[in-house]
Nucleic acid binder design. Structure first.
Lengths: 340, 340
DNA sequence: TTGTAGGCGTTATCAG
DNA sequence: CTGATAACGCCTACAA
């Protein structure tokens, strides 16, 4: 391995001068600066990260904690974090909690010592615990807000409003809400917004796992409740609703309209393409790493969202025109079912 | 910050003893060992990673380079890497090349100095370049093989065989292959296998981008070629094929059968559910981090794959029964289209 | 078994 | 402007 010592020797200067030259600090003659640069170049010198970290106290890496890397929502945020970190010359250390709240503190501590700052995406832990963590060093939240901790979240209330306005404009008066996990910050936001906007007009179907399966489960409830439109916690759930409604013989969007949240890649690829509230995931990731910079207080950035209307929503059909859902649904592994 | 020095002082022993005690090295009296442990515990001592790295030369982190974190294939591998690293007490530093071959070397060098080992997933760079990189330190490949470099890949040939056998058993004789990117190692594997197995009986549709869009494009070609079954480079492509065939009014699996590769999550959620070759992605990630251990030579592990038959494949229909594809396809944003 | 001391590669402080 | 030199926190011969 080639050290700064080697470079200094090759350039015929002292260690100190070499160091200053390379970190283009002031007080270095132009000639020396160049000598050193040349020597470093030709020797292929690369500063030792650990040594640098030891003296400066800065590691040049940011940490990222997500519940599940395989979830497209978090993957998108991770891409943003990664991209911004790279642009600013930092590396990113990721940790996946596997959706397990109880490991969050452990994961965070393990990472904390190795990074300059920590981006916590959708942490499930309590606001208090979050406060403690944040007091230990620079932390930024994504898709979660907590007092005293910088965060970048989304204007969920506005997203709900856009979705509801859209549905109302199409004539839907019986719209159901498929909730996300209890205790989830972003579900609370959606609920608060929707009840403020629609009040009792909204059929609350309850809380579901934020997965395809959760949507399947919710779809039957929506049907039983006589909903003509369904607003879902996220796209994965919406996809599950779509699949189940289809299996039960209800036409989308003719018989019922479905709206998702997030605008994950799959939303636009599915048939019918999903109407959903697009959320700037990657941008959130990028901004979060910028919030890690020591700048002053704890800003709460709220990114704008936008309803993208695709094919899963349409004007309400008169009740008489709606097919009645099948009560028996064929096994999904049976090829016969899936003909369309 | 609490250092080893503090712990030693609190325990009433020297630095060296404290160090030995904590790394449970031999030659430490039981009492001292316990004293130190207690002190460390109560002070909340955590060894400084950089300092440790500086002396030991080992960072306790593994690097992971993937083309695209948002691609479910790579996300699954990343989860495996992450899980295994965590189990073995290491952290993972990820880098996303954004599918850009030209940045691979740069990304790799930047990471190399900060990690004990590097997992390269589906690198696009040349075998030679790969060899150079690997010579610089411990490297393991995933979904790619190169002489002299440890790797874990998949038994692609067997996957192709299983898919082709399945299709043949269903009576398909006109099966088309939708290829992946030129120069891709795994596409080369598929091609080699399929031509060895089916020879001219297989209609080679050419190379396509390994995305939904690539599949859309390929679908029309498959129709024009009169294929009754389509084998795709991966699931994303297969999903594109499905969507396009559907849009053109051809029934799946009645009119044409479609097979994917990878068994990404979306494959089982879509309607009709996709028949595909399941590949142990997470396991590959895990095994790759195990290959990073200094053990001897350069093993090439080849993981078994398995065809999972779902609803996108069925026996060939007599030609007379097949609908003729639409020649005009409605805009995908038109809700009318997507009724099913 | 224990402690002392040197060194890992850098940066930063201080005299020159 | 430059060069010794002292940290940074930890590990590990080596000596006691």
């Amino acid at each position: 391995m080639v050290t700064l010592r080697d470079v200094a020797r090759a350039a015929g200067v002292s260690l100190a001068t070499a160091s200053r030259a390379l970190s283009d600090a002031p007080h270095v003659s132009a000639t020396n600066r160049e000598q050193v640069a040349r020597a470093a170049q030709s020797l292929g010198y690369r500063p030792h990260p650990a040594a640098r970290a030891l003296t400066t106290g800065s590691t040049g890496t940011v940490g990222l904690v997500v519940p599940d890397l395989a979830n497209p929502f978090f993957a998108a945020v991770a891409k943003g974090v990664q991209a911004r970190a790279r642009e600013t010359g930092r590396e990113v250390l990721v940790a996946d909690t596997d959706e397990d709240v109880t490991v969050e503190p452990d994961v965070i501590t393990r990472l904390a010592d190795r990074v300059d700052g920590l981006v916590l995406c959708s942490p499930r832990m309590s606001a208090d615990a979050l406060g403690d963590v944040a007091s230990g060093g620079r932390v930024a939240l994504v898709n979660r807000e907590a007092p005293g901790v910088p965060s970048v979240s989304f204007d969920i209330a506005d997203g709900v409003r856009q979705a509801l306005d859209h549905l109302r404009a199409l004539g839907h008066d019986a719209v159901a809400y498929v909730g996300g996990p209890r205790g989830s910050w972003s579900d609370a936001e959606r609920r608060a917004a929707s009840s403020a906007l629609a009040g009792d007009a909204l059929l609350d179907l309850g809380s579901f796992r934020p997965t395809h399966g959760g949507g399947v489960q919710a779809a039957d409830l929506a049907l039983a409740a006589g909903a003509t439109a369904v607003l879902c916690f996220n796209d994965l759930v919406a996809l599950g609703v779509l699949a189940r409604l289809h299996a039960r013989g209800v036409a989308i969007p003719d018989d019922v309209s479905v709206v998702g949240f997030d605008d994950v890649a799959a939303a636009s690829l599915v048939t019918p393409a999903l109407t959903t509230v697009a959320v700037p995931l990657a941008r959130a990731g990028r901004e979060a790493v910028d919030l890690l910079a020591p700048g002053g207080d704890a800003p709460h950035r709220r990114l704008p969202v936008e309803l993208v209307v695709r094919s899963s929503t349409a004007p309400v059909a008169p009740a008489a025109d709606r097919r009645t859902p099948r009560t028996t649904v064929p096994r999904s592994t049976d090829p016969e079912v899936v003909i369309r």
